[in-house]
Design a binder for these strands. Sequence first.
RNA 1: GGAGAAGUACCCAAGUGGCUGAAGGGGCUGGCUUGGAAAGCUAGUAGAUCGUUAACCCGGUGCAGGGGUUCAAAUCCCCUCUUCUCCGCCA
Length: 424
Amino acid sequence: MLDLKQIREETDKCIELLNRRGGDFSYLREILTKDESRRAAIQKVEVLKAKKNEVSRLIGLYKREGKDVTQILSDMNSFSDEIKNLDEFVTRTDEEIKDALLNTPNLPNEFISVGKDDSDNKEIKKNSTPTTFDFPIKGHYELGEALDILDFNRAGKISGSRFVVYKGLGARLERSLIQWMMDLHANEHGYVEVIPPYIINEASMYASGQFPKFKEEAFKLYDDRNLYLNPTAEVPTINLHRDEVLDVEKLPLKYVSYTTAFRQEAGSAGRDTRGILRQHQFNKVELIKFTKPEESYDELDKMLANSERVLQLLELPYRVVELCTGDLGFSMRKTFDIEVWLPSENKYREIGSISNAEDYQARRANIKFRRANDSKLEFVHTLNGSGLAVGRTVIAIMENYQQSDGSIKIPTVLQKYMGVTEIR
RNA sequence: GGAGAAGUACCCAAGUGGCUGAAGGGGCUGGCUUGGAAAGCUAGUAGAUCGUUAACCCGGUGCAGGGGUUCAAAUCCCCUCUUCUCCGCCA
């Protein structure tokens, strides 16, 4: 959530920055008008409430002394209605303002490039050249079915489209990657391991910014408690510290969180229907940090390096792009996407995303810290990044490590987890 | 799933309608005492949030959360959540 005070003080700048995402955010001015009438009403009602408190106190006093209170009681009635009306007005405008703010995305960082969509993203790093082959290559779906490690037909029988059954060494590859990624980030990069709940309540979805905008993306449980399936580890992990004041000595807090994520992908019917690129259910290892404001961009760079390390150790070709304003996620100020080379598509595809939300999520989730004993509370900055998407890493390994006979080599770092050097 | 108990400030805890925005401890901070410390004595100690303000002050909200009754609610009523105990079931 944006800071209403900032919108008040830097109205033009806020609108201009938001407009860079595409769309018209001049409605912020209407919020400010509402806010003004809200504050005027607050001032009015607070005077009345102070008076009411005083009169109530007197009534108590008079009763104890045995004095008559009928006159004073009727005085009270004269303004209790007005208090009620004003209170209702304040509550209503408050909700309207909050509703508008909850639907307003984060300001883009002012230095990232302005653009319409992913075609305007800026490549900032490329580690190597695409894998070359001296034989006709296959897609991971063909390889997977031929090796009987990915079973789409039976997954359809069990669940429907956009699901897959991992079998044999396919299942082991998925499991090995999870294990290895968790080990890497926990042991070498200093993150604390987390396995959070996969069923999430509505408050948590709002706090991290998934709701209200992206309600249709979540799987809702048939249950009267308004519960949803986890859409990304970012949600439960950010909410670890909702409504908390973090110990400044412990910042930055670093978590590596493993979850299975569930998404409707409602808006992408017909896209990426082959294979496991876009599934309703997928595994992800996610990195989350809570930092002091002045450290968040350094920590973002470190997080990017931690994510890249996964691909470097797997020896997979990738590049890093900086998202332009039009492609930036709702809650984020700045985002790097890591894209891995997929031979079957002859292009780089997103395999991870590393973002700084600054104080946007912290304000929604009410996560603060105190610099010193006598200083005021401040919002922390929150960061999250993929460490990585496991299913897509499986794709990248299968396709980049395929051999002319349809077998797949196992990257060196995974061999001791897999117990084999290739899948055939 | 069944039965019961509980949620009060940093922690423990008293409090069944007004003199309680909250007794009493502990802790923390300061003072006295001491060569210094401990002990003892003593003073201070809602944090938060909203409004106002240059700031202080002041005012509103605030006793798990949300509604209600009342001139007045920690206290009475309703709903929800969480924790604990026992029983049942179960990986």
